[in-house]
Amino acid sequence: MNGLVPPFDFHRVVIEPWTTGFPLTIWIVLMGSLVGIACGLVGNYLLLRRMALVGDAISHSILPGLVVAFLIFRTVNTPVMFAGALLAGLLTVAIIEFIQRQTRVKVDAAICIAFTSLFALGVTLVSAAEAAGPVHIDAECVLFGEIALIPFDPPVVLGGLELGPPPVLRMAAVTLVLVLGILLFYKELLLTSFDPGLARAMGMKTTVWHYGLMTALSLVVVSAFESVGAILAVAMLIVPAMFAAQLSTHLPTRMVLTALHAVASAATGYHLSVWLECSAAAAMVVCGSVLFALAWGITALTRKTGWIDAPTPENSVRQSVAAPPGSGADQ
């Protein structure tokens, strides 16, 4: 065990990151929090629409998007890669929809077909391209990007002011757009998720909202993965939302809990990674999962002991409504 777990040195693990190590800590924890918040907010809707797997699918199909963009433009600069990945994400959603509409395949199987084949296509393209010449993309880095390297990105400088590493700024912008979008279109997202039939009867375009949400999802996953890896992004789509679902039955409260969970996982995860000298992104997921397990355990326990008003399907329904007269067999 001694080889795997270094001794817990309180000063090194807890104090140092916020004193001498602050310039590193702040960007890593901020990036982790932003990824968690953005993914978590979208994740709440994925969960409600029973589409938890779509995030997984999109994160995998990013690879062929990157490769195709590289093969066409012969460059790895960010806007090109970003566009390629985003298009691949949307294409995945379109393929899933198409399979579902044109065949009798159920949605989970349709998702699996779409993303496994796209991921395989990506791997094929990468290895084929490698045979032809050097390629700066590999599947490993798509899956396990490293968040700890973020502070070393040359910062964006605006008017002599150092703003911060570009990935963090990008993620912050995406998170801001997402929060504004949810605030502005809360009503539309709510009704199309809860009762698409009524939404359409009222003239809402459910397909437009679906693709809007999927675009947001692709945008979030793509901006997150290049620095933190697809694994953290996919985990954060589901774990914070599941954490919030354990503790609240009110959607706005869930959104706030999601954000709190994201920040808490990022901070505790970073400390864990300092202690164990391991991948920060993975440690953040581990901490997030532990928080989920805690929330789940506490809710289960309080339900059992009756501290929380547990669902009671048989409530008194007889109130102020007179019982109907006996069935018509009177005559």
Binding site: L184, F185, E188, F194, D195, T249
Partner: peptide, 25 residues
């Protein structure tokens, strides 16, 4: 046809009846 575990309360659901009369956003 709907998921009754959805995180909304009774008032939220009844208010949905008004959505058709509201503008986008």
């Amino acid at each position: 046809s709907v998921d009754w575990d959805f995180p909304v309360n009774v008032m939220d659901v009844v208010l949905m009846g008004r959505y058709g009369r509201l503008r986008l956003g």
